[in-house]
Design a protein around this nucleic acid. Structure first.
Lengths: 234, 234
DNA sequence: CGCTTGCTGATTGCTGACAATCAAGCGACT
DNA sequence: AGTCGCTTGATTGTCAGCAATCAGCAAGCG
């Protein structure tokens, strides 16, 4: 008998699927930072009950995409400079650990897989499919972190990358030098494949160092102005 | 006018308070790893509706203390070797970042506060109040991370420390050399106070290195046997 | 005797209605 | 004019009941 695909992927719990819908709207920028979310409205649009929407919003709150003000409102998280600084510094720490562990137990097949994704990235840039390139960039980092075989780390990293994506959409931030980006990634994955844990960690950590320094500077200067993002009241 | 305490702390949402109750039961070891949790039973004991219990359990699931098996059951998370390894490695990365940032923007008053907590730790050990000492140990680490002024980091760190505490209760693990513990902490806080970010990060990261190495070894050897903890089926 | 199949009780998932809370606007009083 | 207190409409928080799903067991079949 031919192997059948599991139906569980279809049978996702309703609240999870509701969360998926709302999440994509947020990540695509349809719902901008600070936007108020009404339980009733969402429940009508998604054709589920308010309780289900509530559960979905609670999940998104844990992922950092949504914020709850008790008894008052739900709103899409802000994209302030301090938020961005938090996101990028945390990302560095998580990906540093991920790269270290990945390098420590990398297999030959893993290396092939990483190089394949890196090649996709190169192709996307060469063909000027920059949106794709950003997605592949994320995939590459996710793949490296995946090699750590660390469930908690993988989950936290997923949430952080989501927030990075969200902040990029809100602030209109885009990489300015794709060639340098490619070079950095290639160096990172080769170091991981070589099994050099210390060096891999450093590279992963410094990957966003420029961005972090810029944000820290903005923070000290006096708070607000995150690209084109409107500041949410904190 | 003297500063008044917010009343919101009393007016906590019902589901938060329900989560608090269940959480303490788990952390105190009343509910052991792998124990099944029935929504109906909990709702009767806490005198709230099942929906509220459900919301509380979802929160605890995000904190890593409880696990949901869809359509089937809720259970207290396992305390396997791999869980412990994940928890301690993540802890190292988070506290490393925390210590680095703390050292970078530490103030004189912060130093006084850290030294005061360290002194409490010393007193607790001298008076052989070892349970207190463990709590103060956690407070100290929390205080350092707090100096980073990093909300996301602080929250994640809180969750990780909870899981550390849970694992300690389940496995019966206790420090064996309190004098060494004191010395390590003192060195860490003095380095933070001195503003030596690199060194502080390294110290914070290596604080649990021995435990991590032991766990990694156990993991490679062949999975199960986390102290006296019963292994939960993963 | 071993395997499949269909039931059954228990448990979780979801919904609609009710209660508590909030912010905003209006009017009275100082 | 400005502040306080009330009312009101909107929104979130909580509840109790119905529907969907599952693990286990017993009957049927080879």
């Amino acid at each position: 008998m031919a192997k059948l695909a599991s139906l569980k992927s279809e049978k996702r719990l309703l609240d999870r699927r509701a969360a998926d819908q709302i999440r994509s709207h947020i990540l695509e920028g349809v719902l901008p930072a600070g936007e108020r979310l009404l339980e009733t409205q969402l429940s009508e649009e998604l054709e589920v009950s308010r309780g289900t929407v509530r559960s979905a919003l609670a999940q998104l709150a844990n992922e950092g995409l949504v914020k709850q003000v008790a008894f008052t409102r739900w709103e899409v998280s802000g994209a302030s400079v301090s938020d961005a600084w938090e996101i990028y510094t945390l990302r560095g720490a998580l990906e540093g650990l991920g790269a270290r562990l990945a390098a420590a137990n990398v297999q030959a097949a893993d290396g092939k897989r990483l190089r394949a994704i890196a090649e996709e990235l190169v192709q996307a840039v060469r063909q000027k499919r920059f949106q794709d390139a950003i997605g592949i960039d994320f995939d590459l980092h996710t793949a490296i972190v995946g090699l750590a075989h660390h469930k908690r780390l993988a989950e936290q990293h997923r949430f952080i990358l989501q927030q990075v994506r969200f902040h990029m959409v809100q602030s209109g931030f885009l990489p300015d030098d794709y060639e340098a980006l490619i070079a950095e990634h290639q160096k990172l994955i080769e170091t991981v494949i070589a099994g050099d844990a210390d060096h891999a960690e450093t590279l992963a950590r410094n990957h966003n160092e420029a961005e972090v320094k810029l944000l820290a500077k903005l923070l000290k200067q006096g708070a607000s102005s995150a690209g084109a993002a409107r500041e949410a009241a904190s």
